[in-house]
Write a protein that binds this DNA or RNA. Structure first.
Length: 574
RNA sequence: GCGCUCGUAGCUCAGUCGGAUAGAGCAACAGCCUUCUAAGCUGUGGGUCGCUGGUUCGAUUCCAGCCGGGCGCACCA
């Protein structure tokens, strides 16, 4: 709620007012550094004009000794705002802490154990641009949650069970047949029916590997396949081999993208029977059937989950009347496993096309939470569509053979930093237009370079100072006293919001507030830098120069910290 | 048809659990490089916040209806 609280020394406000006071960052600097509409919201219940109430609060604050050291000014403004301006002494202390403290970010009072699951793309093909957005978002969100003090782990759920996997194996087998000159429509229809199966170059690449390398798969299986006999063993070996190759490709793409996972969780393991002859899915479902107060129930020869308890349109099937499990059943087992591993919060990052599944998963989370008798939150982040453009014109994204654009291709063309930053410039909840030509343009069009340039400016300034023989030691609060320019104050005011911005992002499970913030901070520094010469050889200017150098170092540190949370490099020079 | 979601400047988008004169970037126009990187800076123009009602001291924000775009509605995965 009050993330401003995480940036500013507001103990005094907490003590004198109540803990729930809402603090805002005023839009305009003339309204101070911190403000609260408290008096306005109390007006009704107290039956007094807001400005009168504000006056009473202000009188109370004035009686507390810290008020005068912390704030240089407190105004009652507009309809009844209380506006606080931080004192120069506080701001100087803040700069010192930026340069000396090991962390720039306040820790949450109560850390949570959080699991962030994202990407989770089916291992049936390479990652495309849509997955890239989820990857950039999930990875940065996890970093932010960790930065504010939560215990965070990341996870990729591999959908490696079910029919789609068999189809993958068949597709690669058919590609082998085609490449060795034995293509047959009849065989294709026999294996795949009406569907096209998976196509695209990556399928042919795997097929070619099997054909060219006699030891890629067991020799006997390879011979069966080459002879055109699609046995069960051929199916299983081809499926496993293809899936392994594709997962390797996915991991490589992710690693190039700067994304690693603490764990890859295989759906297949949920289906495998354990020592007791039951699969993990079966065990969880029977457990829930016993302990869920009727949320899991049998009817019409099937097993159901009462998802209507969370406003779903209808209850959903878990075990079909033929005895097999739905995908939803596996999802329940997976989330039950996460709860079992002790997470307080499960973050699921999904493509927006899965929004229809929210209600049923929330129903699951509710039941799981009740069962373990502690609060377990499921936070579903829906990542909206990415439409790829080149020079303002749409690039075809259809998944038909060879036409879709992979994440790897975008990385090749645009580069890591610009790709990650571009993905994170907009709220994940709104559709993103990703223009390849703009993203790789090294210009003002592209905020990533704007921010990186600000960092490079700081670094290059420092090396310039060093070259001129300036020695930089420790800073104390008094060293910043010479900073009297309004532009310096605006800059520091913004810097002091860094911690709060991250807390706000963490509380709302968003990343783009950080991207926006870094762009604004870079802008404020560029402005300052342009208008105030920092290095000087005049001895009389030395105190001011040192203050400006210290200020620049602090800005550089915040920029570097912020960029690293976005997974973007903070370059020494550009 | 039902559900979810979005609709803010020419374009792409921010907008703090309802609050001060609704912001940024790009595009357009006009300026700034003998001085620490011009990948930068300065200024100008640009808005019935989709429409109509409602709640409120106060609505871009909450509610209802309508219009328009996207997506989803399986004993599929």
């Amino acid at each position: 709620m009050s993330w401003a609280r995480q940036s500013w020394p507001v103990d005094i406000l907490d003590r004198s007012l109540s803990r729930g006071v809402r603090l805002e960052w005023p839009k305009k600097e003339e309204f101070g550094d911190l403000s609260t509409p408290l008096a306005m919201s109390l007006a009704k219940e107290l039956g007094k004009p807001p400005r009168t109430i504000a006056g009473a609060i202000l009188d109370g604050l004035r009686e507390i000794p810290e008020t005068s050291s912390l704030f240089s000014k407190i105004d009652i403004a507009g309809p009844g705002y209380l506006n606080f301006s931080l004192s120069p002494a506080y701001l100087s202390d803040f700069l010192v802490s930026c340069l000396t403290d090991s962390r720039l970010v306040a820790r949450v009072p109560v850390p949570r154990k959080i699991n962030v699951e994202f990407v989770s793309a089916n291992p049936t093909g390479p990652l495309h641009v849509g997955h890239g957005r989820g990857a950039a978002f999930g990875d940065s969100l996890a970093r932010i949650l960790r930065e504010v003090g939560h215990d965070v782990s990341t996870e990729y759920y591999i959908n490696d069970a079910g029919n789609q996997m068999n189809m993958l194996g068949k597709s690669v087998y058919l590609s082998c047949r085609k490449l060795s000159g034995h293509e047959s429509t009849e065989e294709k229809v026999r294996l795949l029916g009406e569907t096209d199966g998976y196509r695209g170059d990556y399928i042919a690449d795997i097929a070619r590997e099997i054909l060219d390398n006699p030891h890629s798969i067991p020799v006997d299986v390879r011979e069966e396949a080459l002879a055109g006999r699609f046995t069960d063993r051929v199916q299983s070996v081809f499926t496993d081999f293809s899936q392994r190759r594709i997962m390797e490709g996915i991991r490589e793409d992710l690693s190039r993208f700067g994304v690693t996972f603490d764990r890859y969780f295989s759906e297949k393991t949920l289906h495998e029977k354990g020592a007791d002859g039951h699969s993990s899915i079966a065990r969880w479902l029977s457990l829930l059937e016993r302990e869920s107060d009727g949320a899991v129930y049998a009817a019409d020869g099937a097993l159901w989950f009462r998802t209507t308890a969370m406003d779903d349109d209808k209850d959903r099937v878990l075990r079909k009347s033929d005895g097999s499990y739905t995908y939803f059943a596996a999802d329940i087992a997976y989330h039950a496993d996460k709860v079992d591993r002790g997470y307080d919060t499960m973050v699921d990052v999904w493509g927006a096309d899965h929004h229809g599944y929210q209600a049923r998963m929330q129903a699951v989370a509710k039941v799981l939470s009740q069962r373990v008798k502690r609060s377990v939150d499921l936070r579903i982040c829906l990542i909206q569509l990415v439409s790829l453009l080149r020079d303002g014109k749409a690039v075809s994204m259809s998944t038909r053979a060879g036409e879709f654009v992979t994440l790897a291709e975008v990385l090749d063309e645009v580069g890591l930093d610009a790709t990650r930053f571009s993905y994170l410039t907009r709220s994940h909840e709104s559709a993103l237009e990703f223009d390849l030509s703009k993203a790789k343009e090294r210009s003002m069009e592209n905020p990533v370079y704007y921010v990186q340039y600000a960092h490079a400016r700081v670094r290059s300034l420092l090396s310039q100072a060093k070259a001129r023989g300036v020695t930089i030691g420790d800073f104390s609060s008094e060293d910043f006293a010479p900073l009297e320019e309004p532009a310096a104050r605006s800059l520091i005011r913004l810097m002091a919001q860094f911690s709060g911005v991250l807390h706000r992002a963490a509380e709302s499970f968003e990343v783009h507030p950080l991207t926006d913030y870094l762009t604004a901070l870079a802008g404020a520094y560029h402005h300052y830098y342009f208008h105030h010469r920092i290095l000087s050889s005049e001895e009389a200017d030395r105190p001011l120069m040192m203050a400006r150098i210290g200020l620049s170092m602090a800005v550089g540190r915040i920029l570097a910290a912020g960029l690293s949370l976005l997974g973007v490099q903070a370059p020494e020079s550009m």
